[in-house]
């Protein structure tokens, strides 16, 4: 099962490496990892997506906790949370397709960030599921390049 783990870590060099190499050393699955500063510049938040049964995920959480540079580890999976991912994607553009493409961008609440004679770059924000669907739907129009941020997530407020 997929798990979404939020980790507060010391904002120091090498921390990302410690976490990533722990996953590879222990043979844990690491689907995505994203990191950025929090409201406190000394602390970063990492969002990790991993897969495994309960026993494995419980080991993942304990191993994360064991790292000295981790301050707090939370499994958000079964708690109220918001999860978002950013997609940037460049596609082919032609007279024949442009109408449909613009319509779909609207459907997915995307934004055009750049447009050229023969290509268009868009951004879409949403749950990783929505991003997957977006990519599937646009694929027939000719995707040139795409980049995904990986999930970021946070507890829902009270």
């Amino acid at each position: 099962m997929k798990h979404l783990i939020s980790v507060l870590v010391e904002n120091k060099f090498g921390t990302l490496n410690r976490v990533a190499s722990m996953f590879s050393a222990r043979g844990f699955n690491l689907e995505s990892i994203s990191i950025g500063e929090t409201e406190d510049p000394e602390i970063s938040r990492m969002t990790i997506v991993t897969r495994g049964d309960d026993q494995i995920v419980s080991q993942v959480l304990k191993q994360l906790n064991r790292l000295i540079d981790t301050i707090k580890v939370t499994d958000l999976t079964r708690q109220p949370h918001v999860e978002r991912e950013l997609l940037l994607m460049t596609m082919k553009l032609s007279k024949a397709t442009q109408h449909e493409i613009f319509e779909l961008i609207n459907v997915f609440k995307g934004k055009v960030v750049d447009i050229k004679q023969k290509s268009i770059t868009i951004e879409v924000i949403g749950s990783p599921d929505k991003i997957n669907t977006t990519i599937d739907i646009f694929r027939p129009y000719g995707i040139r390049e795409l980049a995904r941020s990986g999930a970021v997530a946070i507890h829902r407020g009270e």
């Binding site: 060099f13 090498g14 490496n17 410690r18 190499s21 722990m22 050393a25 000295i68 540079d69």
Partner: peptide, 13 residues
């Protein structure tokens, strides 16, 4: 520091 990350409890530069 990179080499010994997985074999130390922790390390520092």
């Amino acid at each position: 520091v990179g080499i010994t990350r997985p074999i130390t409890k922790h390390n520092f530069l």
